[in-house]
């Protein structure tokens, strides 16, 4: 698919826009529709488009599989960590009010942080699942070629 000139040019134009839109959904989520889940999926869709056009190996150079595992866990840990931070600062679990002095600023800080955690987890997990499926075919072909029956 990578030989098609139209696809390459259009993708080169579209991928930054898709990723920018993902970031917009992520960080503008408290003002307009959107949030971590949608943003993560849209961001991952941009990466998957890159992988479809330019090949999975090039896409894995952008973000390695190991980085995906780490980030997927880190997003959830960020979410849980913000909750624990509230406990440490004298509130209840996932209570954002103790985080900052102004209640509005504290809530907004908490919401943006947990949504960012969700976004990171969703984006990396979707990329990871896609990588797993896309790599499966080449693995099978390799096994069929080698003929090693382990």
């Amino acid at each position: 698919m990578s030989d098609n000139g139209i696809l390459r040019v259009v993708a080169r134009f579209l991928i930054p826009l898709i990723m920018l839109f993902g970031l917009y959904i992520q960080f503008h989520g408290e003002y307009s529709p959107g949030g971590g889940f949608q943003a993560g999926v849209v961001f991952a869709a941009g990466w998957i488009l890159f992988a479809l056009i330019y090949g999975l190996e090039n896409a894995l150079k952008v973000i390695s599989q190991r980085a995906m595992y780490v980030l997927a866990a880190a997003g959830v840990l960020l979410y849980a960590g913000v909750g624990l931070l509230g406990v440490l600062m004298g509130g209840r679990y996932l209570d954002f009010y103790p985080l900052l002095d102004s209640p509005h600023a504290a809530q907004q800080f908490g919401i943006i942080t947990v949504e960012f955690g969700v976004g990171v987890t969703v984006a990396t997990v979707v990329m990871l699942i896609y990588t797993m499926f896309a790599r499966r075919k080449s693995e099978w072909e390799a096994v069929l070629k080698d003929g090693d029956d382990r």
């Binding site: 907004q108 969700v118 969703v122």
Partner: peptide
């Protein structure tokens, strides 16, 4: 008035029902 966030859905998801959303994130993981 509670959080100064215009998008009510984000407020409910991330703050009022925060533990539910954390559960969803764990489901994804």
């Amino acid at each position: 008035t509670d959080m100064g966030v215009p998008n009510m859905v984000a407020a409910v998801l991330a703050s009022y029902r925060s533990i539910d959303t954390m559960g969803e994130a764990f489901v994804i993981l």
